[in-house]
């Protein structure tokens, strides 16, 4: 009989303790960011999609060795290059990243020995079309240089 009443008592107390905690939380400041109006800066190592690094002239560092293409587990990189007349190095003509398949593992960036690839800080990517996520990185680089 005594336990009947002590149980009720302790139960009630536990409920009031819980309510006390939520009461305190009610008056604490909010911790969320109302996203489209405020945004946070991404940290240095944030992994967006990859992008090409340009040298001083604004041309990509890439030498079209194709290591990134081989390293990619999901086969989402395809690149092409050609040797210009009289030039020594191959020049990148096309670098397509199929972002729909990319899993952001970073194998391509790691495999690159020529400092030609890096992660972008792009996170506002949204589209209803699949084709919008097949990036031409060379074009992106040119747009960035403008």
């Amino acid at each position: 009989m005594i336990t009947y009443f002590t149980d009720i008592y302790h139960g009630l107390i536990s409920l009031f303790i819980g309510m006390g905690i939520t009461f305190k939380e009610f008056f604490s400041p909010t911790v969320t960011v109302s996203y489209p109006y405020e945004t946070l800066t991404m940290c240095d190592r944030y992994r967006g999609h990859t992008q090409l690094i340009a040298n001083e002239e604004g041309k990509p560092n890439c030498v079209v060795c194709g290591l990134c293409e081989k390293a990619c587990p999901s086969n989402c990189i395809s690149l092409a290059g050609e040797k210009p007349e009289g030039g020594k190095k191959k020049v990148l003509t096309k670098y397509i990243l199929d972002f729909t398949r990319c899993s952001l593992c970073g194998s391509c960036v790691e495999s690159c020995n020529f400092n030609a690839l890096e992660f972008s800080k792009e996170y506002n990517l949204a589209s209803t079309r699949k084709e919008d996520f097949i990036f031409d990185l060379l074009k992106r680089l040119e747009e960035k240089n403008k």
Partner: peptide, 13 residues
């Protein structure tokens, strides 16, 4: 709004 405040969110605003 109340739920949001308790959970430290702004709620519909």
């Amino acid at each position: 709004r109340g739920a949001a405040r308790i959970q430290r969110r702004p709620g519909p605003n």
